[in-house]
Design a protein around this nucleic acid. Structure first.
Length: 565
RNA sequence: CGGUGAUUAGCGCAGCUUGGUAGCGCACUUGGUUUGGGUCCAAGGGGUCGCAAGUUCGAAUCUUGCAUCACCGACCA
């Protein structure tokens, strides 16, 4: 490709709307342009990268035995009615109506369509297992699209679905997909981790997320520093502290200071205090509202998901209002404490390990010191309700927890029979009986990967593409071609021979100063530059510059082709 | 959806307090100059100042409403 025929569209200045580095660079390097909130046009350079990611994903899915299909983006709302998700999915599902007033949705995912398809196509267990995938545009009407294509409303996704008669077969495919995903992210040269995940609203038993590690990521991931263990922070178990709890050594004492003041004035370690939260309890329909107290060590944070998973606690988790707290404990939230509280108390494992601790006295402006659980607070329930923090022992039993930010680029689930049951997806088994299938589903955010790759591979001059997804393999940058016939001839010849050899080459034939060309190619992240100048032509050489390492070397013109074999 | 802020040329911004017919830098066009790291000089094109209503002799500027965009939060395979 010659730049004179190409839409380069680089920008010197950073558009004000771009927050994260990948979004800034994607705009500056001319990869995408914004159309409306969460909607992007892919320009030629961006599309080249997107297609390369897509190709790698496709190749590895096919290698793992998945068949490519293509399903409509527009789906009849009836299907969603059938699965029960029309009501569940909420406003993220964009609903539309056709000219006959029939309701449709823009597909945010394709479980319904694929399950319906398979229900119609399969009739015998002999056709199983079956694995189908597509690369398709999805639409989710995100509450807050941000970070460019990282969280757009319309995005490109590879989604695969597998169908099985039994759980063991599903497990085998799940493992296969797990391995295929690892291969994909290795080929993309991304620093990634598979992470144990919450199955969330989609349901099912087993699930892994694949995260690209980057500070700008939206998810917190807990790692072991001594093993492969990694889990979404929502899912990472906080183990009970080891060893015996120390015996009470202090007498309980009431002091006239708010807990907050007490911590400040007497240099109290937060780890020797507990904080108390009041949340709604789960009650039968029609029963009066009831509350439960949750107690955490002062330095720890409540994990909403763990709390919600406790049956006694109302889901979604709802914190009591100031008025409700006053009604229960006759004090402000800052003076709540577990002693003599008129509601059930659930204590986090770490808080439960404390002795002689400090807490609120359920009386405005007063606290207790030297508190001990059984002696002063009576019966308590202990549970894991906090977020893990760096330094906690890893739940895998080896090493300690480390926390990093990640960008979720892949997610694999064992779905189970939820959709197959709803859509009546069954085959005849060996005994001639109808049997409902079990399913897996496996997603990869193709467009998000482009952004994630930039987050991990850039410097102050621009993008540093991994070789496998660079828009061009090499750019020819001629020095003062307009004045030098020799430079022009050499560059032309190099371009022709590289093109013929099937190399993706960008020939910068603009009448620009060298600095402008260098800056543009560095911004776009082309891995190799071939610099053709008078300086080296007498020796029949051109300069080769590596974008990643910054290394420059001279190379004989007739050896250039050999670089790309 | 709540909180905050923004909306003036393709991009980045000033002008608004104190109303008087719109400006700077980059980009773009033309000519010259320069040519191994974003040259320099000159001339030029481009804006119903987000939309609507109101106040006023007169509104980018003041008032009201609406829309869009972004940030923080809640939400999220």
């Amino acid at each position: 490709m010659r730049t004179s025929q190409y839409l380069l569209s680089t920008l010197k200045e950073t558009p004000a709307s771009a927050e994260v580095i990948s979004h800034q660079l994607m705009l500056r390097a001319g990869l995408v342009r914004n159309l409306a909130s969460g909607l992007y046009t892919w320009l030629p350079t961006g599309l080249r990268v997107l297609k390369k990611v897509e190709t790698i994903v496709r190749e590895e899915m096919q290698r793992a035995g998945s068949n490519e299909v293509l399903m409509p983006m527009v789906q009849p709302a009836d299907l969603w009615e059938e699965s029960g998700r029309l009501a569940d999915y909420g406003p993220e599902l964009l609903r539309i109506t056709d000219r006959h007033k029939r309701p449709f949705v823009l597909g945010p995912t394709h479980e319904e369509v694929i399950t319906k398809l398979v229900a119609n196509e399969l009739s015998s267990y002999k056709q199983l297992p079956l694995n189908l995938f597509q690369v398709q545009t999805k639409f989710r009407d995100e509450i807050r699209p941000r970070f460019g294509v990282m969280r757009g409303r319309e995005f490109l996704m590879k989604d695969a679905y597998s169908f099985h008669l039994d759980d063991q077969c599903l497990e085998t495919t799940y493992q296969k997909m797990f391995n295929a995903y690892c291969r994909i992210f290795e080929r993309l040269e991304l620093n990634f981790r598979p992470v144990i995940a919450d199955t969330g609203s989609i349901g099912g038993e087993k699930s892994h997320e694949f995260h690209v590690l980057a500070d700008s990521g939206e998810d917190d991931i807990a790692f072991s520093d001594a093993s492969d263990f990694a889990a979404n922070i929502e899912k990472a178990e906080a183990l009970a502290p080891t060893g015996e709890r120390a015996a009470p050594s202090q007498a309980i004492e009431k002091v006239e200071l708010k807990l907050e003041r007490l911590i400040k004035t007497s240099n109290l370690d937060l780890k020797t205090t507990v904080k108390t939260l009041l949340v709604l309890a789960e009650v039968a329909d029609g029963a009066p509202e009831k509350f439960i107290a949750l107690v955490l060590r002062g330095d720890h944070q409540l994990n909403d998901i763990k709390a919600e998973n406790i049956p006694a606690i109302a889901s979604p988790l709802t914190l009591a209002t100031d008025e409700q707290i006053a009604a229960v404990a006759n004090c402000h939230i800052s003076s709540l404490g577990p002693k003599d509280l008129a509601v059930d108390v659930i204590v986090d494992r770490s808080a439960a390990h404390l002795s002689d601790f400090v807490c609120g006295a359920n009386e405005n402006g007063y606290s207790y010191t030297g508190v001990n659980w059984e002696r002063d607070c009576g019966e308590i329930t202990v549970a894991d309700i906090r977020n893990v923090v760096a330094g906690d022992p890893s739940p895998c039993g080896q090493g300690n927890i480390e926390i990093k930010r990640g960008i979720e680029v892949g997610h694999i689930f064992q779905l189970g029979r939820k959709y197959a049951e709803a859509m009546n997806c069954a085959v005849l088994n060996e005994g001639g009986k109808n049997e409902t299938l079990t399913m897996g589903c496996y997603g990869i955010g193709v467009s998000r990967i482009v952004a994630a790759a930039i987050e991990q591979n850039h410097d102050e001059n621009g993008i540093k593409w991994p070789k496998a997804i660079a828009p061009f393999q090499v750019a020819i940058v001629p020095m003062n071609m307009a004045k030098s016939a020799r430079v022009k001839e050499t560059a032309d010849n190099l371009y022709d021979s590289l093109l013929q050899a099937g190399v993706e080459v960008l020939f910068d034939d603009r009448k620009e100063r060298p600095g402008v060309m260098f800056a543009d190619h560095e911004l776009m992240g082309t891995p190799l530059l071939l610099i053709v100048g008078e300086r080296n032509l007498d020796a029949q050489q051109v300069e080769l510059k590596n974008r990643i390492t910054g290394e420059k070397s001279l190379i004989a013109i007739d050896e250039v082709l050999a670089l790309f074999n």
